[in-house]
Nucleic acid binder design. Structure first.
Length: 575
DNA sequence: CACGGGTGCGCG
DNA sequence: AAAGCGCGCACCCGTG
C-alpha cells in the first residue's frame, strides 16, 4: 500500500491511497491540516488506519517532510523519495528508452540542494511550517508541463516495469529511499559527542583556548620555525611563503606537502610537520568547529544521501565524513548505553568479486582477510602487496609497485580484473557504465567531447591528440572505479537499511532515540547507539544485515561480506 | 570587499 | 605527480 503525500492549498496536505493491486489506480484521498499530519502518519504506521500492512509513503523529498515528523515523535518505516529515485531512473542505462528518461528536463531534474532547502539542526529559524513549505513551488505550477507528484510516481513505476531489470532497480530505489530516511534520522539523533573531552584533547595538544591568535603550542612552534629558517616574518600557513623560506635554507622541496617534507632530513622538518598537523587540527576540528557543530552532547552534521555521483553520501557542513582519528575519543556513549562500531572488511574488493563472479577471488576471501587470502593463493608474497595491487586495479594505477603487480593479479583473478578493465575501456569511449543495481555513471561533458573530436579532425596536432588521450584515460579511471564504488555504496545502503529494520524490531514501540538507533555512517562503517543490555543483539543484527545485503546484491554467489562489530564506550576504542 | 581557483589534508 | 578513485573544508592569494 502506498500513500502519496502532497501539499495542497495553503497549509493543507492531501493523502492519496494508491492501491497497487488495482494497477496503481488512485483510491480514496483525504485532505488534512498540516499540524494533523504527524498524528495521521502515526496512525497509519501503527496499522490503525484500517489497512493491514504498513504503508510506503510517497513524497517529493524526504528532507522536507521527515524532520518535522521525527520531531513530533513519529517514525516512518518505508518511503519513496521521488527526487532521489528520479535522478537514478533518469540516468540509468536500464531505463534509457522509457518516457521518463526521454522527457524534457522538468522540475524533477533541477538540483535540489539550495541552502534554504532543509532545516538545519543548529538554527532555530525554521519552524514546522516553513521547513515543509517555504521552499516548495507555488501551488499554481501544478500544470501540464510540471508533472504532479502522482504523475511522477506513475512515470517512475512505468520506467521500472519497462526496464531491463525491474528487480534490481526496485531494490535500488527502495534502498535509496531508506537511505533518505536514515539520513534524516541520523541528524535527528546526532552522534553522541563529549564537548568536554574534545576540549581536553585540544588543550592537551594545543594549549588552552586562546582569546585571539594562535594557541600557545602553535605559537611556540611557529617561533621555532622562524628561528631555524632565519625568516623572522615567516607565515607558516602560507605555502608559497614557507616554500621560499625552506629553499633559502637550502632545503630543496618542490612543495610544502607533508609527505614530501617527511623524506627530507633536516632539523626544521620535525617541528614543521608537528606545526602542520596541529594547525590542521585547530582549523578543521578546533574550538570553532566545536562551537558550531556540537550542542547538547550531540554532533549533528547535515547528511546528503546520494550526494555523490556514485551514490555515496556527502555531507554539508561539519565535515562529518572526515572526522579525524585524532578526535574520535570524544565520541562517547551516554551513561548506560554503548556504541556498536561496525565496519565492513575490504568492502570494495569483495564487491568487485561479486560483480565479476570471480570464484578464485571469492575463495581467497572466504573465512579470512581477503588480502591474506590473495597471498595464500600465491598471486603475491605479502599482504601489503595484495592491498596495493587491488587498489591499483580498482583505481587504474599504471606505474609504480601497483602497476608492476597488475600482471600477477590478472593471472590469478582474470574475471575480476577484466570487469574493471572493461569499465575503463567503456569510459575511455565516453560511454556510461552501470552499477550492480542500476545506477549509471554520467557521460563526460562538452569539453571532453570537443577535445575528442578535435583530436580526430584532419588538422589535429600532436598536442590535441595527447590531450584527448589523457582526458579519455582520466574518464576511464573514473568509470573503472565507478562500477565498484557505486556497487559498494549499494551494498552499504542495503546493509544499513536491513540493520535499521532489525534495530526497530528490537524495540518496536519505543521512540527512535530511546532504543537502539543508528548515529553515524561513513561509506562502509556504521555506529549504533544502544542501551547496554541490547548491545549484543545489536552486534548480531549488524552481522545478519551484512549477510542479507550480500544476498540482495549477489544472490547465491558465494562472496562473503564479513563485518566487525565492536561494543565500546568510545569510538576511539574501536580498531 | 567578495569571489573563485589553488593548495593541502582529513576521511573512505 | 604519491600510482590510481570519490569527496568537504579551511586557508591563502590573485583578480575583479
Amino acid at each position: 500500500m502506498h500513500i502519496l503525500l502532497e501539499r495542497v492549498g495553503r497549509g493543507d496536505v492531501r493523502a492519496t491511497w494508491l492501491d497497487s493491486s488495482h494497477g496503481g489506480g488512485a483510491g480514496r484521498s483525504e485532505t488534512l491540516a498540516l499540524d494533523a499530519l504527524p498524528e495521521f502518519v502515526r496512525t497509519e504506521e501503527t496499522g490503525a488506519g484500517g489497512g493491514g500492512d504498513r504503508p510506503r509513503w510517497v513524497w517529493d523529498d524526504t528532507r522536507a517532510w521527515y524532520p518535522a515528523l521525527l520531531s513530533a515523535g513519529v517514525r516512518v518505516e518505508r518511503c519513496v523519495d521521488l527526487r532521489l529515485c528520479h535522478v537514478i531512473l533518469r540516468n540509468s542505462t536500464l531505463t534509457a528508452s522509457t518516457p521518463l528518461a526521454r522527457a524534457e528536463p522538468g522540475r524533477w531534474d533541477v538540483a535540489v540542494e539550495p541552502e534554504a532547502e532543509a532545516p538545519t539542526a543548529h538554527t532555530a529559524l525554521f519552524d514546522f511550517d516553513e521547513a515543509l513549505f517555504d521552499s516548495e513551488e507555488p501551488a499554481e505550477t501544478a500544470n501540464a508541463t510540471t508533472p504532479s507528484i502522482r504523475d511522477e510516481f506513475a512515470a517512475q513505476e512505468e520506467a521500472v516495469a519497462a526496464s531491463a531489470d525491474p528487480r534490481r532497480l526496485r531494490l535500488l530505489l527502495a534502498a535509496e529511499s531508506a537511505g533518505a530516511l536514515i539520513g534524516v534520522e541520523l541528524q535527528h539523533a546526532g552522534l553522541p559527542y563529549s564537548a568536554e573531552r574534545h576540549d581536553e584533547l585540544l588543550t592537551d595538544l594545543l594549549g588552552p583556548r586562546p582569546a585571539y591568535g594562535r594557541p600557545a603550542v602553535l605559537e611556540t612552534l611557529a617561533r621555532e620555525l622562524r628561528d631555524q629558517l632565519d625568516a623572522p616574518d615567516l607565515n607558516p600557513d602560507s605555502p608559497p611563503d614557507l616554500l621560499k623560506a625552506l629553499q633559502r635554507a637550502g632545503i630543496m622541496a618542490t612543495s610544502t606537502r607533508s609527505w614530501e617534507l617527511r623524506r627530507i632530513e633536516h632539523p626544521v622538518i620535525d617541528p614543521l610537520l608537528r606545526y602542520k598537523k596541529l594547525s590542521r587540527l585547530l582549523t578543521a576540528n578546533g574550538w570553532t568547529w566545536l562551537d558550531a557543530w556540537v550542542h547538547d552532547g550531540r554532533f549533528r552534521p547535515d547528511y546528503v544521501p546520494g550526494g555523490v555521483v556514485t551514490g555515496r553520501w556527502a555531507t554539508r557542513g561539519g565535515g562529518a565524513l572526515q572526522l579525524p582519528r585524532q578526535v574520535r575519543g570524544a565520541v562517547v556513549a551516554d551513561p548506560g548505553w554503548k556504541l556498536v562500531v561496525a565496519d565492513a572488511a575490504q568492502l570494495e574488493p569483495r564487491v568487485l568479486t561479486g560483480l565479476s563472479g570471480d570464484q578464485a577471488m571469492a575463495a581467497a576471501g572466504r573465512g579470512k582477510d581477503l588480502y591474506e587470502g590473495i597471498v595464500a593463493s600465491g598471486a603475491v608474497e605479502a599482504r601489503a602487496q595484495a592491498k596495493v595491487a587491488m587498489l591499483g586495479a580498482m583505481y587504474g594505477a599504471t606505474t609504480g609497485e601497483s602497476g608492476r603487480l597488475m600482471p600477477r593479479l590478472t593471472r590469478a583473478f582474470p574475471r575480476a580484473v577484466r570487469l574493471v578493465e572493461e569499465a575503463a575501456r567503456a569510459g575511455e569511449r565516453g560511454e556510461k557504465v552501470t552499477s550492480r543495481l542500476g545506477r549509471s555513471s554520467p557521460v563526460p561533458g562538452g569539453r571532453w567531447a570537443a577535445a575528442q573530436s578535435a583530436a580526430s579532425a584532419s588538422d589535429a596536432t600532436e598536442a590535441d591528440e595527447r590531450r584527448a588521450r589523457s582526458l579519455s584515460r582520466d574518464w576511464g579511471r573514473f568509470t573503472r572505479n565507478f562500477v565498484v564504488q557505486a556497487s559498494a555504496a549499494e551494498w552499504a545502503l542495503c546493509w544499513m537499511a536491513e540493520l535499521r529494520n532489525r534495530l526497530t524490531a528490537l524495540a518496536p514501540d519505543e521512540p527512535l532515540t530511546a532504543s537502539p538507533h543508528l548515529v553515524y555512517f561513513l561509506h562502509d562503517e556504521v555506529i549504533v547507539h544502544t542501551p547496554e543490555a541490547l548491545a549484543d543483539e545489536v552486534a548480531a543484527a549488524v552481522h545478519a544485515a551484512a549477510q542479507q545485503a550480500g544476498r540482495l546484491l549477489f544472490g547465491g554467489f558465494p562472496v562473503e561480506f564479513p563485518v566487525t562489530a565492536a561494543i565500546v564506550d568510545s569510538y576511539a576504542e574501536a580498531k
